[in-house]
């Protein structure tokens, strides 16, 4: 029933590498979009509206994945859309990681009242219905790239805070930390030099999952109409655009959906892989 350790190891690496490959391809497509995409993302052609994908009757090779309700090429929009979706993901990961790790660090290192106060903050954040909070914030303060990134980061910082806090607590009483304290190394230096590096690997693992989560959250917000309203669409925006065309142009929704699912899947595969390789203790 059980396979040999090597084959299990290989399979795990294979999945991780698969995820990494997909991510790299998506990232390259995003970066080189102007060269890869056959059309501009906002190139409107009112004469070529709602053309189906090439493999369906009525489709043509001019538009491999069909066109949308304004006659824009869906393949090109999916490629350009990767720019927005990935940068929202990356932005949210960076902000979330910074805030979350900082809070986790303080909370874990100082313990006591600081820990209690920060844990309280975490609990309040968790108890908030996130989607409602996000819609509310974005609708009152306005959409746009920055606010979406910040709001999405709001959804993820808690994960970092928890993991980092745990890591910090497990190392803060180690001898080398005590030694540093006893020779009078300033606290901020102790945190930076001796404590934080121990949490790096866990932060990276959480980041790869958060990236996936962030892309999904952005898609959901755009779908609700409070996302980024730019000419370059995010995948979520495309999903929302296609919503009233489900019956006569399903490809408007299907294509960005597949792109999102693939990218998120890749992010999760990488996360699993990293977790196994770097930090198996995090496995729930």
């Amino acid at each position: 029933m059980r396979r040999s350790a090597t084959s299990v190891f290989l399979r795990r690496n294979a999945l991780g590498l698969l995820g990494l490959t997909i991510l790299v391809i998506v990232a390259l497509a995003a970066i080189f979009a102007p060269w890869v995409a056959p059309y501009g993302p906002a190139k409107i052609d009112l004469m070529a509206r709602l053309a189906p994908p090439a493999w369906i009757d009525g489709g043509s090779l001019k538009h491999l994945l069909g066109t949308d309700n304004l006659g824009r090429d869906i393949l090109s929009r999916v490629i350009y859309g990767a720019q927005i979706s990935l940068s929202v993901g990356a932005g949210a990961v960076v902000i979330g990681a910074l805030i979350g790790s900082f809070i986790g660090l303080l909370s874990g290192y100082f313990g006591g009242i600081v820990d209690a106060a920060l844990s309280f903050l975490v609990n309040v954040q968790l108890a908030f219905p996130f989607t409602l909070l996000a819609i509310f914030l974005l609708s009152t303060f306005g959409g746009g790239f920055t606010s979406v990134v910040v709001v999405v980061a709001l959804a993820t910082w808690v994960n970092y805070a928890r993991v980092v806090r745990g890591q910090v607590m497990s190392v803060k009483n180690q001898e080398y930390v005590e030694a540093a304290k006893s020779v009078g190394v300033p606290t901020d230096r102790i945190l930076r030099r001796y404590i934080l590096p121990n949490a790096f690997s866990s932060i990276i693992v959480v980041a790869s999952f958060s990236m996936a989560q962030a892309i999904l959250t952005e898609a959901a917000l755009s779908f609700l109409g409070v996302g980024i309203g730019s000419a370059t669409p995010s995948w979520g925006t495309m999903l929302n655009d296609g919503r009233s065309y489900l019956q006569n142009a399903w490809w408007m929704t299907a294509m960005p959906g597949v792109a999102t699912a693939l990218t998120v899947l890749a992010g999760n595969l990488c996360g699993d892989w990293l977790q196994d390789r770097i930090d198996p203790r995090l496995r729930k």
């Binding site: 029933m1 399979r11 779908f223 979520g236 999903l239 959906g257 999102t260 693939l262 998120v264 999760n268």
Partner: peptide, 27 residues
């Protein structure tokens, strides 16, 4: 564990986790 079924279901679960819920709803 380790059979083709394990592999299939796990992959499917990962895919299910990856696709936006509302998109699956629409489909």
């Amino acid at each position: 564990r380790g059979t083709i079924w394990d592999f299939l279901v796990t992959t499917l679960a990962m895919a299910g986790q990856a696709a936006p819920g509302f998109w699956i709803g629409l489909m």
